[in-house]
Amino acid sequence: MSRTPAETEATSQELHALRDALPLANAPIESALGYAPGGLQAALDVHANPIEVWRTRDYLVSLARAHGIPIPRFSRLSDNMRSSAQRWFGPWDVPTM
């Protein structure tokens, strides 16, 4: 799954917007995802392994649903891209809350 620089930027903006909408600090999100302190940033900036970007997206979506926050439309990380991503990168687990 290759992305153009514009697609990478759009994906990063979408992830950051969702993260910013959540009423949580980064530390509990990083802990749930198994990231070192500060590790969330790489996934949000789309500079992490694609599986980690997807895991982060999915976990943020689950948190947003739990807090009644609207889920944004994702351009590249859309639900209809999931099966293709899993074929390319393999399956991933999303932590439960």
Rank of each mutant, 00 (worst) to 15 (best):
M1D: 04
M1L: 11
S2E: 03
R3L: 11
T4R: 03
P5S: 13
A6G: 09
E7C: 07
E7F: 11
T8V: 15
T8Q: 15
T8I: 14
A10I: 13
T11I: 03
Q13Y: 06
Q13T: 05
Q13A: 03
H16D: 00
H16V: 08
H16G: 00
R19C: 08
A21T: 13
L22P: 00
L22V: 06
L22F: 03
L22G: 01
P23A: 12
L24R: 13
L24C: 01
L24S: 06
A25L: 15
N26M: 07
A27P: 03
A27M: 11
P28K: 13
P28C: 10
I29N: 02
E30F: 15
E30S: 12
S31T: 04
S31A: 10
A32V: 04
A32G: 04
G34T: 04
G34N: 14
G34D: 09
Y35Q: 07
A36K: 15
P37M: 09
P37W: 03
G38W: 09
G39D: 08
L40N: 01
Q41S: 10
Q41V: 07
A42H: 08
A43C: 13
A43Y: 02
L44C: 08
L44N: 04
L44P: 04
V46N: 01
V46R: 07
H47F: 02
N49H: 08
N49G: 01
I51R: 09
I51Q: 14
I51P: 02
I51A: 12
I51H: 11
I51L: 14
V53M: 09
V53K: 08
W54C: 09
R55I: 07
T56C: 12
R57Q: 07
R57G: 04
R57Y: 08
D58V: 10
Y59H: 11
L60A: 03
L60N: 00
L60W: 01
L60V: 01
S62V: 12
L63E: 05
R65K: 06
R65E: 11
A66Q: 14
A66W: 13
G68R: 02
G68N: 09
G68F: 02
I69G: 00
I69R: 02
I69D: 00
P70C: 14
I71V: 05
P72I: 14
R73S: 14
R73H: 15
R73M: 14
S75N: 02
R76E: 11
R76L: 13
R76Y: 09
L77A: 08
L77S: 03
S78C: 05
S78M: 04
D79K: 06
M81G: 06
R82V: 04
R82W: 08
R82S: 10
R82H: 10
S83I: 03
S83Y: 03
S84F: 10
Q86P: 02
R87N: 02
R87W: 13
W88D: 06
F89E: 08
F89N: 05
F89I: 12
G90A: 07
G90P: 07
P91N: 13
P91H: 14
W92R: 07
W92A: 00
D93R: 15
V94D: 11
P95Q: 08
T96H: 10
M97W: 05
M97L: 13
